[in-house]
């Protein structure tokens, strides 16, 4: 199948090095300490953060740092065919773990000993790149909850189809059978915190795809930063009248 036309356009009209349209909202749920939705094209994810709060299960309490927990789920309606997915499925468990580890690396857990942070991530609409989208949403929600972090973490995926590296694969491209690589970065520290790919790829191709995904992640960071700034401005503006 041709994933990229000789004119250099992908199936959805993007060029190979282009992200899908990004959209994010912060503070979508009032109940939670922090919440955000994040959209990459048609992939939409909601992330909700509770904490830092008291550890529910005392035996799990850590004396020197905070306990981070993460739960990933997919809404029944998130894909074209309605399918109920249990919480315990392999993919879900793996993704929960991946998100937890990535966020744990970002949070300054040593500042919040004896506490617990819960991150709930739910995919509302899936169209490829859910992994990256979940991490971005979780990062925003953590920021919204005011949890101290080392750096803003941002993630993006990239693939390799028809001998071309492609940024931010959608579902159609994702099911094209090529490699799919997800990267999460601390862009200020310039450190990679997550790198996942389950395919055999020659080294030179890997490098190209990896660089592309990193570039994508940096662009996403930029976007996250803008959204957070805007949100902060809004909050500052909301606070102002109170003072007067």
């Amino acid at each position: 199948m041709d994933f990229i036309s000789p004119e250099g356009l992908r199936l959805d009209g993007r060029r190979p090095f282009e992200l899908r349209q990004l959209h994010a909202e912060i503070g979508v749920l009032d109940n939670a300490d922090g919440s955000a939705t994040f959209e990459m094209g048609n992939t939409k994810v909601i992330a909700v953060v509770y904490g830092p709060r008291e550890v529910q299960n005392r035996s799990q309490q850590q004396l020197d740092h905070a306990l981070v927990r993460c739960e990933y789920s997919m809404a029944t309606f998130s894909t074209g065919d309605r399918r109920r997915r249990g919480k315990g499925d392999r993919r879900g468990t793996e993704l929960s773990l991946v998100i937890r580890q990535t966020m744990e690396a970002a949070i300054l857990t040593n500042l919040l000993p004896r506490s617990q942070i819960d991150i709930f991530v739910q995919v509302l609409q899936a169209d490829g790149g859910t992994r990256a989208c979940c991490i971005n949403a979780a990062a925003l929600a953590l920021a919204d909850a005011g949890i101290p972090m080392r750096d803003l973490v941002a993630s993006c995926s990239a693939g390799y189809l028809n001998s071309t590296p492609l940024l931010d694969l959608n579902y159609l491209e994702d099911s094209g059978g090529g490699p799919d690589l997800t990267v999460a970065l601390f862009s200020k520290l310039d450190k990679v915190t997550l790198l996942q790919m389950d395919a055999k790829v020659p080294l030179d191709v890997f490098e190209k795809v990896m660089n592309l995904a990193s570039e994508g992640a940096k662009a996403v960071t930029q976007f996250l930063r803008e959204i957070l700034m805007e949100n902060t401005k809004k909050l500052a503006f909301a606070k102002e009248p109170l003072k007067v």
Binding site: L11, D12, G13, R20, G41, N42, G80
Partner: peptide
């Protein structure tokens, strides 16, 4: 530069599915 316009398409894949795909318009 990017404009997103989603359009709806029905495909049959055993059963009837509603497929939503993005369609980016360019300048």
């Amino acid at each position: 530069m990017l404009q997103s316009k989603a359009y709806v398409k029905k495909t049959r894949h055993g059963r009837v599915l509603k497929v939503v795909r993005e369609h980016y318009l360019r300048d």
